[in-house]
Amino acid sequence: MRLRTRLTAWYAGVFLIAGVALIALNYWLLAEWMPMDGAVAARALPTDPYGSYATIEAAQLPADTVVVTGEQLKASTMSTVLWQSIIALLVAAVIAVWLGWVVAGRVLAPLHSITTTAHRLEATRLDQRIELDGPPDELKELADTFDGMLDRLASSFDSQKRFVANASHELRTPLAVQRTLIEVALGAPDASDEIRRLGAHLLDTNERSEKLIDGLLLLARSDRGLATRELVWLDETIEDEVQSCASLAASKEVTFDVSVRPYLVEGDPVLLAQLIGNLLRNAVLYNKPGGTVSVRLGRELVVSNTGPTVPAEAVPGLFEPFRRLRDRVGTAGSGLGLSIVQSVARAHQGSVKARPNGGGGLVVQVNLPETGVRQPS
């Protein structure tokens, strides 16, 4: 039961208890005020201006006069008062429930603002604040505390992202120097076969490190959000990335099955190309010889492959940085592919989800907000 409903029920319950107590008190006072036990009453006639009354014998009244006893009059009066009080209480209870619902809604309105703000928050969007106006009560104190916590979280996240970006950027220079030195050593005419084998291994290790650094830089960039936006045809980007992955697919004996339609989004073209490229390269690298990569762009982008079986419980962990399946360890990937895809999608107010493909492989669905503009014919 929602809090507003519980508060309304409490208001109505307290009102009903107070109303029943008031009716009981009035009923008791009325019973004490009407002591008519055993009296015979007819018509009360004032005999003097001071309000004294005379009693007329029943035999002296006309034949059509209704004569009631005091007990009957008292019982009739008490019954009428009781039923009218109950009806009035029920009507007032309905009004009290409505007023309780309205008052509870106004009291809980600041909590709804806090909840709505919390739902809008993400690691990449910590700029939302409640900024509650009103008297300095408990709810205002709660909202201000929540805003202060968000300020501290935003500062912490920004510091972390800046550190990752700066560290990744600083590591690129020594890696580039190392690659140059290795290439120069391998190009020396007196280099032995052992040195050449060692140099080739070092170059491969250096290339993996550079890819990892580039992935971290891209992840840090997408986590900071989009600085600028422009219109991007997603279908054209897909076709370009498919061509870029053609040689990799040929070396792995993997074929592409592509079906796209015009799809216009607003965002960063470099990040969107990286999103699609990561999906395609992952689908090729973690495939089997003779397998296929299916690319469908309809209401959303769906990329699936025919690789090894992926356990359903392992799918959520694939979106975490450096998380890979056990049978994928040692491949050319760095474990950042799906993390970058998810980060770029969130930066474009989109979403990503994945599920195992029947018969082996993985199906990744990317939902990006499409603009209302259509490609001219």
Rank of each mutant, 00 (worst) to 15 (best):
T5A: 13
R6N: 07
L7T: 03
A9R: 10
Y11E: 05
L16C: 08
L16V: 09
A18S: 08
A18W: 05
A21Q: 00
I23H: 04
A24I: 07
L25N: 04
L29H: 03
M34D: 05
P35F: 06
G38M: 04
V40F: 03
T47Q: 10
P49T: 05
Y50A: 12
G51H: 10
Y53C: 04
A54W: 09
T55E: 11
T55M: 14
I56H: 10
A63M: 07
D64S: 13
T69D: 13
Q72S: 11
Q72R: 10
L73Q: 02
K74P: 00
K74V: 02
I86L: 10
L89P: 00
V91M: 14
V94G: 11
I95L: 15
A96I: 06
L99N: 12
V103I: 15
V103F: 15
A104V: 08
R106N: 01
R106W: 09
L111P: 02
S113H: 14
A118L: 15
T124V: 07
T124W: 06
I130V: 15
E131F: 14
K140R: 09
M149K: 11
L153R: 06
A154E: 04
F163V: 07
F163M: 12
A165S: 09
L171Y: 13
L175S: 05
V177G: 03
R179Y: 06
T180P: 00
A185D: 04
A188S: 12
S192P: 02
D193N: 14
R196H: 06
H201T: 00
N206C: 09
E207Y: 03
L217Q: 04
L217Y: 07
L218H: 01
S222V: 13
S222E: 00
D223S: 11
G225I: 10
E230Q: 10
V232R: 01
V232G: 05
L234E: 02
E236M: 05
E236Y: 02
S244V: 07
L248T: 01
E253F: 06
T255M: 08
D268H: 03
D268Y: 10
D268F: 05
G277N: 07
A283M: 11
V284C: 07
L285D: 14
L285S: 11
V295H: 05
V295S: 03
L297H: 11
P308D: 09
A312Q: 08
L318I: 08
F319I: 05
L325N: 10
D327L: 12
V329D: 03
G337Y: 08
L338C: 13
V344K: 05
A345F: 04
R346T: 09
A347Q: 03
G350K: 02
G359F: 12
L362I: 09
Q365M: 11
T371Y: 13
T371H: 04
G372M: 13
V373P: 07
V373L: 15
Q375P: 00
